[in-house]
Design a protein around this nucleic acid. Sequence first.
DNA 1: CTGCCCCTGTAA
DNA 2: TTACAGGGGCAG
Length: 254
Amino acid sequence: MRRITGRRIVSGRIFRRRLCALMNPGSFARAVAGRRVSGVERRGKNILVHLNDASLWIHLRMTGDLRIAGPGGLRARTVSADLLLDDGRSLVLDDSRGLAVLRVVGARRLARLAASLGVDPLSAEFTAERLAEMARRSRAAIKTLLMDQRRVAGLGNIYAAEALYRARVDPRRRASGLGAERVGRLHAAIVAVLRRALRSTLCAYRRPGGFDEAEAFRPAVYDREGRPCRRCGRAIRRLRQAGRSTYFCAGCQW
DNA sequence: CTGCCCCTGTAA
DNA sequence: TTACAGGGGCAG
């Protein structure tokens, strides 16, 4: 994203009912107006925009999109919130389904939220040993563990399925019974899948409109129920785990 | 643990 | 027209 660090916020508005329930538009406007952006970072699936003594904690969910708009802003029905910056640009939260969350948090709540997040798979702390240790202590199915943000911060339903498929591990397997070999494969697969997904997303941001199809992230297993596995040809199966659809190949994931 | 809710675009 | 998908928070 183009740099917004150092810019001062002139005004902030929220439009979505869901966001208004979290904080009323007036208090949001007062909370951000006049503050300067001191930094931006990602933690798991969350984006933090720091404003010195407060922060915006943003979760885009599935359909949210954070973008920079030029003068004039972005006037779409789907805009959930925007911040007008002192250089005329706007930081816009655009979200067709309105499930994204944005809130202003003080240092205390920031620390509490941050502490509730597990290890980021793209950080140096995410080692095979760390994953093995988490797995050992969990009675849940491995896919459920991977999707638990308190343990691993950043994998959702789709990437969890893709990582398990890549590692050839059955998503139904008990985490505690994985064994070092499977944990090792899974660790490598998680990192590979997320790196690939991130690259695809970055390309899409850099070339809005139409980007190289070769860069697009194409699920190898997710949403492919009944279609042949690209490795072994067996039909991809679907089942429900923790209320979510899990796609996997019973032929080569075990 | 399960199920429901939020919301809305898409597919059946 | 209805069911379903997504992430997370919450109730049971």
